[in-house]
């Protein structure tokens, strides 16, 4: 079972990296870009487990290490 975990800063928290990239994109001519948020993509190979087991593990992994829930939110998908 493979999974992709996406970790991003909470919407309420300013993302200076995203702002810098937004400015760079505007300089490239993409003046329509209204917001850029930077996050992390974490790919995992969870071995031979069921989807239910994977879901349960991923929640614990995200809460315990992959995301800092004080500042970040996460979502994941199995693939």
């Amino acid at each position: 079972m493979k999974a992709k975990v996406y970790v991003t800063l909470k919407k309420s928290i300013a993302d200076p990296q995203g702002n810098a990239i937004q400015n760079a994109l505007r300089k490239l001519g993409y003046t329509n870009v209204e917001e850029v948020r930077i996050g992390k993509l974490i790919e995992l190979d969870l071995g031979d487990i069921t989807a239910d087991e994977a879901n349960a593990q991923l929640v614990k992994m995200c809460e315990g290490l992959l995301a800092n829930t004080v500042i970040e939110e996460y979502k994941f998908e199995l693939c």
């Binding site: 800063l9 928290i13 300013a14 200076p16 990296q17 810098a20 800092n68 004080v70 500042i71």
Partner: peptide, 17 residues
């Protein structure tokens, strides 16, 4: 210490990067 939960809050990237 913040990551370990021994202190409240978190430290993120400086505002000016």
């Amino acid at each position: 210490l913040t990551e370990a939960g021994l202190l409240p809050g978190a430290l993120v990237r400086n505002k000016n990067l």
